[in-house]
């Protein structure tokens, strides 16, 4: 395990050039590390960059989790208690239940891809911005 190493003093004076949205045109920030160069987690947790990251992550994760669990349980409960509806033939002998089950596969794949895309475009850059606060420079 490597400790986060603070950048040399001179580079601390250079502003963070726009890696996170909160750092546009702001004066350079001191690194959020203690005397030994270890990250100051409480300060990072309260930083604008981190609260923005947390908000972005949770705003996606919690509603989507609630959504897919509700949709899955609806399907399960319908299968258990709404036999007639689920047994309605749609295409040949393929019934509503099979189609809804296949739709579960489709929504799972779609949600997986949309989370991967969201994380790549909206979360990863913000993670880099927070990591810069602790002096970790991405390659």
């Amino acid at each position: 395990m490597t400790k986060a190493v603070p950048r040399p003093l001179d580079s601390r004076q250079t502003p963070n050039r726009g890696r996170g949205f909160a750092t546009f045109d702001e004066p350079s920030k001191p690194l959020l590390v203690d005397d030994e160069g270890n990250p100051d987690f409480v300060a990072i947790q309260q930083s604008e960059e981190f609260t923005a990251l947390r908000r972005r992550a949770l705003l996606f994760i919690f509603p989507m989790t609630a959504l897919f669990l509700a949709w899955y349980l609806t399907y399960v409960i319908a299968s258990a208690y709404a036999h007639d509806f689920m047994s309605t033939r749609v295409l040949g002998v393929v019934n509503v239940g099979i189609l809804l089950g296949l739709l579960q596969f489709v929504t799972t794949v779609a949600l997986t891809l949309s989370y991967a895309r969201y994380a790549k475009r909206r979360l990863d850059p913000q993670v880099s911005a927070v990591r810069e606060l602790a002096g970790i420079v991405e390659e």
Partner: peptide, 12 residues
Amino acid sequence: AEMEVRSMTGIG
């Protein structure tokens, strides 16, 4: 604070 920051960013 350490766990939350670390779990989301890998710092530390």
